[in-house]
Design a protein around this nucleic acid. Structure first.
Lengths: 298, 298
DNA sequence: TCAGATCATTCAGTTCAGCTTAACGGTTTC
DNA sequence: GAAACCGTTAAGCTGAACTGAATGATCTGA
């Protein structure tokens, strides 16, 4: 019978592309990965790897096997998930999310869950969405709140189940005395010449704002950088520029000297998703997150 | 993550009822089984066994786990089955069947398969249906041709997939000079006083005939026993009694001195089934068996 | 064009998970 | 009440699976 450990190794190879990378992900040496796959190949009677230069690629047989393996993994998750619900050992939920989601959605949801299940343990990780999904797959996190993005291939992975969470619109944050501050709403085209206060490069908030501006046909000028929204707003309050804030980024108390106006356009939207491992779907956690999101964006 | 080997052990315990019996089935010591299940219990956080006197019984959690495990096993079978089809290593099909089925159905079907796939290997086991199913489950056989019977619980096992094969009627075999030998057909009630030539006790043919007679309200009298149909018919030809033969038991050449007459009643029927492991369904083999059966009983 | 870097595999040596053996306590049976 | 049986535990051992070093093949950049 097929060995699930070997299937897991094959899966890691499919994920990471090279034996070395798979080995690293599994905390093994390349040697061990190579040996495991050799045994698997022998036990199935199929060639699974094909050398392509100094690398290897999966054969058709290996791809078929990976597809089946994913179903097995999901079923094992499902079993474990159901047992966790039966088990007297208190459950520990490990949640990953991007910073604003944790503030606005995860934390309130966890409060509800803690009140309902005081014995549960909670772990929260503040990670960018790519990392969240990777942690989901390697099992170090159970539920992830991630942002939808076109270039996020892992969200199509069969091992991951995706559920919609919320959709945010953006607001423009302006200094109180700004020429546009009196309007009902602001158009992106109004902001072409404005100096922007942006998040640090590499953070998703930075990428999002620049992407939105790029879609609108300009590149945001901005000499000021700050890592969190509080700092960004403080800079804006003092007249250093403007920025775009997604709904979750709007703090409960808008600081003095900052005006938030909805965008005239309705297309720059930020879609957040819940991601869980297929089979291990934590229905209560999902329900709590969804409820918390519904309170913010009904 | 759950260990499939441990799940298999739990399954064996569920099958065999006791740790000792499960151990024997797995070619392990009871100690090993106990230890595996202890580890599984710890890793799930659930009690899986409950002592009941000097035995153990599965808890609810364990039963849930077994249900999930069966799905995993089937999926692993499915993967292996698909790879076998891709593999360049020639397939070996291991078929078990009861004696008459092998003669009448399995052998002709295998001939067709061998002509289509000269490189395939074949192994045939002549076993009673209970054993066939057991071998199917323990993996030592791939396809089994078995008889349906009310007291055959394993046919409801989720690890086994059942397909209809054929339905036989019975014939009465009489000596040529017998008082009933001239009739169109014979009723069971005509045979109440007749001496029967039966198969050896313990063989399914014996049980079937006595069961049919019991249903008709009498116990077959019979001092003569023989293990195979040829011998039975030879005894009948020499006037030692009568018997009931299912269609597959009717040899191509009815020996001189024996008359076969259809039964007037249509209810003593023998239903044969194909059994395969869920997931490993050998479609070509099934097709060949079904085709061979259709030739016999259109 | 060649040296150095990278990658997968092989082989020998080692380690530890998981087995067996042996001993024990509880339960049933005669 | 002794003997048989069953499951669990403890101790020790074995082999499957890992590591590490060596090899060959390939790619890259100077």
């Amino acid at each position: 019978m097929l060995d699930v450990r070997q299937l897991r190794t094959l899966r890691a190879l499919a994920d990471h592309g090279t034996v070395s990378a798979a080995a690293e992900a599994l905390y093994l040496t390349p040697s061990a990965v190579s040996q495991q796959l050799a045994v698997l190949s022998k036990s199935t009677g199929c060639e699974l790897l094909e050398r392509r230069g100094r690398n290897v690629v999966l054969t058709e047989a290996a791809r078929v096997l990976v597809t089946h393996a994913d179903v097995v993994f999901a079923q094992l998750e499902r079993a474990q998930s159901e047992l966790r619900a039966i088990s007297p050992v208190p459950m520990t939920v490990r949640i990953a999310g991007f910073p604003t989601a944790i503030m606005a959605v995860v934390a309130p949801a966890m409060r509800v869950l803690r009140d309902a299940h005081p014995e549960w343990g909670f772990e929260v990780a503040d990670t960018e969405s790519e990392d969240s999904v990777a942690h989901l797959i390697d099992g170090s996190v159970d539920v992830a709140v991630v942002m939808a993005a076109p270039n996020r291939p892992l969200l199509g992975d069969p091992r991951i189940k995706i559920l919609p969470l919320l959709e945010e619109i953006y607001h423009a944050a302006l200094p109180a005395g700004h020429r546009l501050a009196g309007a009902e709403h602001v158009s992106l085209t109004d902001l072409v010449q404005e100096p922007f206060v942006l998040a640090a490069e590499g953070l998703s908030c930075h990428d999002q704002v620049t992407a939105i501006c790029a879609d609108a046909g300009f590149q945001p000028r901005g000499r000021y950088r700050a890592t969190d929204f509080g700092a960004v707003l403080a800079l804006i309050a003092n007249g250093f520029g403007v920025t775009l804030l997604p709904t979750l980024g709007v703090p409960l108390q808008v600081p003095e000297g900052v005006v938030l106006l909805p965008l005239k356009e309705d297309w720059p939207r930020r879609v957040s998703l819940i991601a869980v491992r297929s089979g291990a779907e934590y229905p209560e956690v999902i329900a709590a997150l969804t409820a918390a999101a519904a309170k913010l964006v009904p």
